[in-house]
Amino acid sequence: MPFYGVDLKSRLLLGTARYPSPKILGEAIQASGAEVVTVSLRREAGSERGGQSFWSLVRSLGVRVLPNTAGCHTVKEAVTTAHMARELFDTAWIKLEVIRDDDTLQPDAFGLVEAARVLAEEGFEVFPYTTEDLAVADRLVEAGCRVLMPWGAPIGSARGLNNIYGLKALRAHFPDIPLVVDAGVGVPSHAAAAMELGYDAVLLNTAVAEAGDPVAMAKAFAMAIEAGRMAFEAKPMEPRDMAVPSTPTIGRAALGDRR
């Protein structure tokens, strides 16, 4: 499913923060095969050059960028940040974060929907970071979002998919909206599980950046996501409550008293 008209071959969207070095960041992005990386914007002094060299690195990799509004707690902050991001990165895409709670980094559903509406009306293509709440998701689509990004678990927690039932319900409710599990993914099996639910992509950062070997982990995630998608398309069997022998019982030799 295209993301605002853009077809992506890779279903892994990768964050660019917290890597041990710019070199490892670049290698991890390449190993992941990701075509989209998330970026942010922060204050920079006239004497600093960090942002400029980071931008050169991202550009050299030829990937599409998805700027975020990380750290925003109000609609006004998020909308102003989105405007700055659109100019800075020359893209209408925005990963919209409006955070309410600092312990869980849980989105503020009310602020998120309001900011999404403002930005969609101004021509932004909004990727909202939300929860698996169906009613909120419905409001986001109503507000103009054509992609939804529910969390698996709180950002950076590595807890995986906390509410599989909720994520499944969301998938069933929005068959035509690209869905991305964003945040909380810790290991490749979490990402594979999201893909097996029929999610279109997974967005992650810390699980790769803080791995002992980020480049190898980036590759492992890419493989898991591909495997999970392939499994979804192959239509997994339904779980059962009781055992069913896989080896045929007909023709079994009668060697004891049991019939």
Binding site: Y19, V39, G51, F54, N68, A70, L88, F89
Partner: peptide, 10 residues
Amino acid sequence: VEVVAPMQGG
């Protein structure tokens, strides 16, 4: 005045 530049993000 706020002046921001590209930065790493998740």
